[in-house]
Nucleic acid binder design. Structure first.
Lengths: 203, 203
DNA sequence: GGTGCAACTTGACACTGTCAACTTGACGCT
DNA sequence: AGCGTCAAGTTGACAGTGTCAAGTTGCACC
């Protein structure tokens, strides 16, 4: 008598989404190594072989989870950007701060998203879509793209910097202790490299 | 009658190094997911439980392999730097090009090195040592560190940029195709962000 | 010359992904 | 209404994985 149709047949009805939800829970609780098809199946209340009807192996499930994780990722970036300021510079720095915060708060989701090999996702490219996480970065970079130049250059500069910083930072490579907050690392100092992004290199 | 002492007793004599060597071979052949303790043991000609006497689980073996991989990493960076030029700018760009080249040529070693959690290597920090890969980056950055400032700022700026670029690039996130050469991506354009690294932000 | 012990083996266990064969029930068609 | 098809889920099996306990072996040291 729950809200979801309580047909207790062996047809779950929404197993695909249930498995994704279970997978995210397991990831958040135990990290990327804790994720397995059988644990997801058990948590969703189905048999161990049921996920094979919805995903192409563990990597298929990870891809589906990554699509969901992108929503969380985007939310972190947008929220951080909003609490930073209105100028293009402040907005860009906010996006970057949200990138790091997402990596700290949802480490396993970050690993899932960027552990994916672009070569083995035959279907729709999950990024580079409109309203995607990449689009958020793209919009934040737009004010810094010089007229008549390819926007990808500035985008990849910013993305490379913040992605590399986040990956190194959350794994503890940039300090002695494992960080739990953005303030545990030299975020401001490193991001200062972006102070003159897009301006011509010859001063 | 080989050069290595042919004592065929059950004492291998140099099993630890043999396992590391086997592991690197397996990594280069099949990627990071192909690595397993049992396969390393089989290739080294010992029983499946023998590695436990030398490494603390699979992550322990990965750590030992990473230490070896750093030598290859360093070699790539130094060679690329040498064929680039003598100016500090050319040298820094060469180091970065070597970083990417290493990621392309030894993808599994890159994943092994940076898949390691700094929190669970209780022993010596493999990086930040003298003559380590990090020291190479540090030396290349030194000419750009303003007097009286902490060198870590410039180092982390450069490291973040090149690390993020490499990670995104080798996974195919920066283009439609999976890259096989540095020239398959916008390396020069992105590295242009370093053209004025270390100079004061207020022009 | 005997003893201790590190190195390695064997065997077992739980867990994993994956496959084949089977059951069930919902849906469309005549 | 009856029937058949077929997707969705189950069960069982298999090879591979890490890990532990217990046993064996031979080197080194006293």
């Amino acid at each position: 008598m729950t809200l979801k149709t309580p047909k207790k047949s062996h047809h779950h009805g929404d197993l695909r989404n249930a498995l994704i939800k279970a997978g995210i829970e397991i990831l958040e609780e135990g990290g990327i190594d804790a994720l397995s098809l059988r644990k997801c199946a058990a948590r969703a209340g189905v048999s161990h072989a049921a996920p094979a009807h919805h995903f192409d192996g563990l990597s298929g499930l990870k891809g589906a989870i990554a699509s969901e994780a992108f929503a969380v990722f985007s939310r972190h970036m947008l929220e951080a950007a909003q609490s930073e300021g209105d100028s293009p510079q402040a907005r860009l720095k906010g996006i970057c701060r949200g990138y790091v915060q997402f990596g700290l708060a949802h480490r396993a989701l970050l690993d899932t998203i960027f552990g994916i090999e672009m070569s083995d996702l035959q279907r729709e490219p999950i990024e580079h879509d409109d309203s995607s996480a990449y689009q958020i970065l793209r919009d934040a970079c737009a004010p810094f793209v010089p007229d008549g130049t390819q926007p990808e250059v500035v985008e990849f500069q910013v993305w490379s910097l913040i992605h590399g910083y986040t990956m190194l930072f959350v794994r503890g490579h940039l300090g002695e202790i494992m960080p739990t907050d953005v303030a545990d690392g030299p975020f401001e100092e490193v991001m200062a490299l972006l102070d003159r992004v897009g301006t011509p290199p010859k001063s």
